[in-house]
Amino acid sequence: GEAIMLDTGTTTSFLARELLGHRRLTVVTNSSDIARTLATVNGNKVYMAGGELRSDSGAAFGISAIEFVSRFSVDHAVISIGAVDADAGLTDYELEEAEFARMVLSRGQRSLVVTDHTKFGRQGLVRVCGFDGFSELATDQPPPPDIAAALSRAGARLTIAAA
């Protein structure tokens, strides 16, 4: 019965499949994969952002997609991220993806970043936000000490997924 906003990505698509065990979700996304996964099952309601549909990801981007999701306030705002660096914070490699992710994080009571350990210590081209721009980071392995310290200073919760 809760509302969740998800950006596009392989990690958030995996999360969407895990959400199939939940009922009556309201889902807001720019990902056609996530929309197809969660629509028409378990009484879910799915809102799909419009905009230019990219052939590489099957996701909508651009100003219309950002404006669309800005109208919603959700319980959980979830993004995946391309790079996490202690100094640069969260960064990605595409301007449109970073802009969309930034908006998603601003729309949730809880703002969650999901990533795997291979993204630690990397810097992308475009900054999404600093460590104070989200409430929780979930990952598969503990981050390096400098990233763990940056999370702690910002008051962001760290969750390590069980194998």
Rank of each mutant, 00 (worst) to 15 (best):
T91D: 04
D92A: 05
D92H: 02
D92F: 01
Y93I: 11
Y93K: 10
E94G: 01
L95M: 12
E96C: 07
E97D: 12
A98K: 04
A98M: 04
E99G: 03
F100E: 01
A101R: 02
M103W: 02
M103V: 15
M103K: 12
M103Q: 11
V104G: 03
S106T: 07
S106Q: 07
S106H: 05
S106M: 03
S106A: 09
R107L: 11
R107G: 10
G108Y: 03
G108K: 03
G108H: 06
R110V: 12
R110C: 10
L112F: 09
V113R: 00
V113E: 00
T115M: 04
D116V: 11
T118F: 08
K119V: 07
F120E: 04
F120G: 06
F120L: 07
G121R: 00
R122W: 08
R122G: 05
Q123D: 09
Q123K: 15
G124M: 04
L125K: 13
V126M: 14
V126N: 10
V126L: 09
R127G: 04
R127A: 11
V128M: 02
V128G: 00
C129F: 03
C129Q: 03
G130H: 01
G130S: 10
G130A: 09
G130T: 07
F131G: 02
D132Y: 00
D132W: 01
G133H: 07
G133I: 06
G133Y: 07
G133T: 05
G133D: 04
S135K: 14
S135H: 14
S135N: 14
E136S: 10
E136H: 07
E136Y: 00
L137N: 08
A138Q: 15
A138N: 09
T139P: 03
T139I: 12
T139G: 06
T139E: 07
D140T: 15
Q141C: 13
P142A: 15
P142L: 14
P144S: 12
P144L: 11
P144W: 09
P145M: 10
I147Y: 05
A148R: 05
A148F: 04
A149M: 10
A150W: 05
A150E: 05
A150S: 08
L151P: 00
S152W: 08
S152I: 09
R153C: 09
A154K: 02
A154Q: 01
G155L: 12
